[in-house]
Design a protein around this nucleic acid. Sequence first.
DNA 1: CGTTCATATGAACGTCTATTCATATCTTAT
DNA 2: ATAAGATATGAATAGACGTTCATATGAACG
Lengths: 93, 93
Amino acid sequence: MNDRLFKCLGDQNRRRILYCIGRGEMCVDDISTCLELEQSLVSHHLRELLECGLLERERRGKKNIYRVTKTQVLTLLESAKELGDSLKGCGCE
Amino acid sequence: MNDRLFKCLGDQNRRRILYCIGRGEMCVDDISTCLELEQSLVSHHLRELLECGLLERERRGKKNIYRVTKTQVLTLLESAKELGDSLKGCGCE
DNA sequence: CGTTCATATGAACGTCTATTCATATCTTAT
DNA sequence: ATAAGATATGAATAGACGTTCATATGAACG
């Protein structure tokens, strides 16, 4: 268990998407242009994040708006970043 | 960046190894029998954890002793666990 | 030195995963 | 109803990853 969460966060583009949305909300196209990723690719990743329960979706007109449901994931990413940085200067690139 | 760390923690067996060693130290064979994993497999995973900088190795006689260098990773695993649990009851299995 | 214990390494294999391309779906406006 | 905008979906592909098996390495000890 927890495997899916880690696998989900294990992809850089998905983490970028989470960071990008942050505590606000965004539609697919905005994320797509913001991160310079293909719309289709973003959609696929959003689906995974959604199924993991990290995001929620809301229809608003033509657009689908995404929001981070569990903001804990942002702090988790932050701690991971700190840990990752502290691993840099120890012979392991 | 940070990609390798997440990928590393993305494997259940590697997380089990980290938990298993915990704040103590263990040799390969102990981990192997403790987790009921092939010695070879454990060795491969230890190598990855080592290269990520999460573990350090020490030769002691015939044995190789492994230790968790960055205990922050244990707390990180803990927070991830909590987050993962909170994701269970929201329609996403 | 040869043997045994403990571990590392490399090749091989199947499986999972990210990405792309093409197309379908759904919504609003004309 | 048709068209255009916005997004989702499915197939296909290439590359990465986890596991296993067989073998190599290294240390201690007779």
